[in-house]
Simulated assay, not measured.
Amino acid sequence: MDQWQAEPLPLFETPDWVRVVGVFDLETTGIDVTTDRIVTAHVGVLDASGTVIQAKDWLADPGVPIPEGASAIHGISTEHARDHGRPAVEVVDEVVGALRALLDAGIPVVAYNAPYDFSLLKYEALRHGIAPITDPSPVIDPLVVDKAYDRWRRGKRTLEVVAAHYAVRLDGAHEASADAIAAGRVAQALAARFAPWLPPSIEELHTQQIAWARTQAASLTEYFIQIGRIEPDDELDGSWPIR
């Protein structure tokens, strides 16, 4: 080789832990994880190419009216949920069971903004007398990972925006299956993009996300105080992947 010829860059393989991933998403009656209810849910599994190899969808009758604002987002009205949805207790029990089976098998579950979905599911389980998932692991949260590895990128970090940034197709945003699958594929795209810097094991990634989420919440708290959005004594909860 000519002494002035550059060495070829090493190739980094995508981590093994994204070759099979679970995906999880909820659409709900609102954004309060302690009081709002599940309307639709999706739990599935993607292979290394991002192809869906398992999928289960649920439509629940939440037992309470669905606010018009929530219906406008996910398209499910109170009347439709009452006419076509299954009892909430059955849906919650089955969603908890499906997720527990994946986690117990060591399959990482991808959830975009994981503390929202896992926390709301926890409180739904408690509401219906079902043993909740209190410490989900291993979990991959593309929102946390993207912020950690591309901290200074400008713009919003909604699933739609981040999916577009990583060239992941998202049809039917705010539909549980579409959001769950897109989040899984974003996680795989992140793993491919940042392979040289990612931890080798899913357990280490899970642990790092706990610290990243805490740091990100502290940074956002400081920013919100500066712009007057929250009071100086307030603090955003950085608990991850469940609150």
Rank of each mutant, 00 (worst) to 15 (best):
D2T: 02
Q3W: 13
W4Y: 14
W4H: 15
L9D: 11
E13Q: 15
D16N: 11
V18S: 08
V21A: 05
V23F: 04
E27C: 10
T28P: 03
T29M: 10
G30N: 13
T34A: 15
D36K: 06
D36H: 09
R37I: 06
V39A: 03
T40K: 03
G44L: 00
G44Y: 02
V45T: 12
L46P: 01
D47S: 14
G50S: 09
V52C: 11
V52R: 12
K56E: 10
W58V: 02
D61W: 00
D61K: 07
V64F: 12
I66W: 00
I66D: 06
P67W: 12
E68P: 11
G69I: 10
A70I: 09
A70M: 12
S71E: 12
A72S: 14
I76K: 02
T78P: 01
E79W: 05
H80N: 14
H80D: 10
E94S: 07
E94P: 00
D104H: 11
D104T: 07
G106Q: 06
P108M: 03
V110K: 06
P115N: 09
D117T: 07
D117F: 00
K122Q: 14
Y123F: 15
E124S: 01
A125Q: 06
L126D: 07
H128C: 10
D135P: 00
D135N: 14
S137M: 02
P138W: 03
P142T: 05
V145A: 02
D146K: 03
A148Q: 08
A148S: 08
D150M: 08
R153W: 13
R154C: 00
A163K: 04
A164P: 04
D171L: 12
H174S: 11
I181A: 01
G184F: 02
A189R: 03
A192Y: 07
F194E: 02
P196Y: 05
P200N: 12
S201Q: 06
I202Q: 01
Q208Y: 00
Q209M: 09
I210L: 06
R214S: 13
T215V: 14
T215W: 11
I225D: 05
I225K: 10
Q226L: 09
E231I: 03
E231S: 13
D234S: 15
D237I: 13
P241V: 01
P241N: 05
P241F: 06
